[in-house]
């Protein structure tokens, strides 16, 4: 994959991050280095090797459908940057409201 200005700009918009020009340049360099490192794997022949998606071979780690005590609301809101009464408060994003998947 080619790391260029267009890709950085796309990642910025996907993550809703706003970077300075300086940060962009740094990120371009860092991402390129990370990918280069990962690309070393291409030297290995992995045909016939199952992709590893999970560290353990566990299956079916389900819970029974039981309710346990919820977190106290004050605790839940405690670490929020901003709140209003019983709610978390965030900048308004209504224009994108219906843009998310459902």
């Amino acid at each position: 994959m080619n790391i260029d200005k267009a890709l950085i700009s796309k990642l910025e918009s996907l993550t809703r991050l706003q970077l300075t020009e300086e940060e962009r340049l740094q990120l371009e360099v860092d991402l390129a280095a990370i990918l280069q490192m990962v690309e070393k794997m291409n030297d290995l022949d992995t045909s016939g090797v199952e992709p590893l998606t999970h560290i353990t071979s566990e299956l079916n780690r389900w819970r029974e459908d039981r309710v346990e005590e919820a977190l106290d609301r004050e605790m839940a809101l405690k670490n929020a940057p901003d709140r209003e009464g019983p709610f978390f408060r965030v900048p308004k994003v209504i224009e994108l409201d219906d843009d998310r998947p459902s």
């Binding site: 209003e84 408060r89 900048p91 209504i94």
Partner: peptide, 17 residues
């Protein structure tokens, strides 16, 4: 996902999770 309330103020949305 949680629920956003947009009509409480001009510049903020309120979130109920």
């Amino acid at each position: 996902a949680g629920k956003s309330l947009h009509d409480r103020s001009e510049s903020y949305s309120l979130i109920d999770l």
